[in-house]
Design a protein around this nucleic acid. Structure first.
Length: 473
RNA sequence: GGCCCCGUCGUCUAGCGGUCUAGGACAUUUGGUUCUCAUCCAAAAGAUCGCGGGUUCGAUUCCCGCCGGGGUCACCA
């Protein structure tokens, strides 16, 4: 590694909503660039038009924006190394593939798809048999003029090893013989991933390539291409995968969602950032709430874990609940918008939020916990009696006492209510639990709510009395 | 199957030859805060450091083998 300017990239293909593992890799790439004061960019790898999924490009940007891992250069933002979309750079790939042909590092292959298919039928692990690698100049010429469709393949070394120092994996080595003479340019003239990345990473002056471990095996071909083109390869960093609880590669089968899905479920982008960060990196006890800037400061590419990490939703829940508790009410209120009915009064929501936020794991937990403040619950007399533990007659007496205190109290605050009602409870013959739980159920219809007196204040004197009166009528 | 990577509590991890009868956090369990739940605080339980060999006076830490898990073998990325 030189101390040249650091530039990293996230190069997704628009074939669906990005997998959360890819998002994590993108976070690491961002962190690395920012740590060294460099640039982070997004490049769209859309060379396979058949697999393209409508709308996924927007989702890619949306996720990164949400998480704050915003690119300095991208297809939408542009930049000095554009275009940032591979399908708009086709002439470039054409030019370099010609260079490779001329120098003998690549060759034309006229093999039919049927022949290739046959090869694979004989052996599912078969590599290309390099049939066209040694075609004579004349034969190539003959095929060309007769218009046989062709692809361009890399002329990989047949012996030796490709060895490199990986930033996270350490020293890595792969036998060249393991590598196929990979197709560089497809029959339709469009480059394949392996070719396009190399060209673009070099042209865009990417200094560090951060990608998933699934690309380790294709690194030799990339290295070969760099060498053939006379280019200095970037520093490579292969980061581990995200696994499901059963240790197989994380997928929808495990209930895993994209970042967008988690945001829909009420997770805060801040918590998702932290969660992703700690999955594969350690700092203190892995439970500090960190901002993106703090992560940039702490991040150290040499300390990225080498083992795959299991996606544990409980950790996300913890981080999310902590962020919710920490966040100022005004901020939290803004995030809550998509999760509550439009007709709920803002000020009331904020008041309730103050009480409920320490009981929330996600933003979705708010509405169910706040709903009875806005809509009077249907409460049966029996459910109240179950809590009071006394006869209906005795319970009615207690309720009348409570109502008259509430009605006459001038200072309608939680502390005053607490004091007055506790005094009354003491001489009521009901235990504190019986007295207050029966009131709780009467006003909320449930046995679990924030502290009773706080709830009464939010409900208001009038509404409280109304609800208490409706029970034994 | 070939090749490559990985292997410390259920999970995220600390550990870089003796400080480890292995530390922290999440989750779990139990207490405490005289209304529930939650928060908060405290405590408990939880890992023969995948297994077997070496090297060493001494291995969680170094080497080898095995086992287990993962990745990859497309005109996908």
């Amino acid at each position: 590694m030189t101390d040249a300017h650091v530039r990293t990239r996230y190069a997704p293909s628009p074939t669906g909503i990005p997998h959360i593992g890819n998002t994590r890799t993108s976070l690491f790439a961002y962190l690395l660039a920012k740590k060294y004061g460099g640039e982070f960019l997004i490049r769209l790898e859309d060379t396979d038009k058949d697999r393209e999924v409508e709308g996924s490009e927007q989702k890619i940007y949306q996720i990164n924006d949400l998480l704050g891992i915003t690119p300095d250069e991208s297809p939408v933002k542009g930049g000095p190394f554009g275009p940032y979309v591979q399908s708009q750079r086709l002439d470039l790939y054409q030019k370099y593939s010609q260079l490779l042909i001329d120098s003998g590092a690549a060759y034309y292959c006229f093999c039919s798809e049927e022949r290739l298919k046959e090869l694979h039928e004989k052996d599912q692990y078969a590599k290309y048999d390099r049939h066209c690698r040694h075609l004579s100049q004349a034969e190539v010429q003959r095929q060309m003029v007769s218009g046989t469709p062709y692809v361009i393949r890399a002329k990989m070394p047949e012996t030796g090893f490709s060895t490199w120092h990986d930033l996270v994996q350490g020293k890595l080595s792969m036998p060249n013989a393991e590598c196929d003479d990979k197709v560089l340019i497809k029959r339709n003239g469009v480059p394949v991933y392996h070719f396009a990345v190399v060209i673009d990473d070099h042209l865009m002056e990417i200094s560090h390539v951060i990608r998933g471990v699934e690309y380790i095996v294709s690194t030799p071909i990339h290295l070969f291409l760099y060498e053939a083109l006379g280019w200095e390869p970037p520093v490579l960093a292969h980061v581990p995968l995200l696994l499901g609880p059963d240790k197989s590669k994380l997928s929808k089968r495990h209930g895993a969602k994209s970042v967008l899905g988690y945001v829909d479920d009420g997770y805060l982008p801040e918590a998702i950032d932290n969660f992703l960060f700690y999955l594969g990196f350690s700092y203190k006890d892995n439970s500090d709430l960190l901002t993106l800037d703090q992560m940039v400061e702490i991040f150290d590419e040499k300390r990225i874990q080498r083992q795959n990490a299991i996606f544990d939703i409980q950790r996300l829940n913890y981080l999310n609940s902590q962020w919710i508790k920490k966040m100022p009410i005004e901020d939290l209120f803004l995030r809550l918008n998509a999760f509550i009915p439009a007709d709920w009064n803002d000020d009331k929501v904020k008041q309730i939020l103050e009480l409920v936020k320490e009981r929330m794991f996600t933003l979705r937990d708010f509405a169910p916990a706040a709903e009875y403040f806005f809509t009077a619950p249907v409460v049966s007399a029996q459910s109240v009696l179950d809590q009071s533990g006394h006869t209906e007659k005795e319970t009615v007496v207690w309720f009348e006492t409570a109502k008259s205190i509430i009605k006459s109290i001038s200072d309608f605050t939680a502390t005053a209510l607490h004091e007055e009602l506790a005094n009354a409870q003491a001489i009521s013959g009901l235990s504190p639990k019986e007295a207050f739980m029966s009131l709780r159920v009467a006003i909320s219809g449930r046995s679990v709510t924030p502290p009773l007196f706080d709830c009464l204040v939010i409900l208001g004197k009038e509404e409280t009395l109304k609800r208490l009166s409706s029970i034994f009528s």
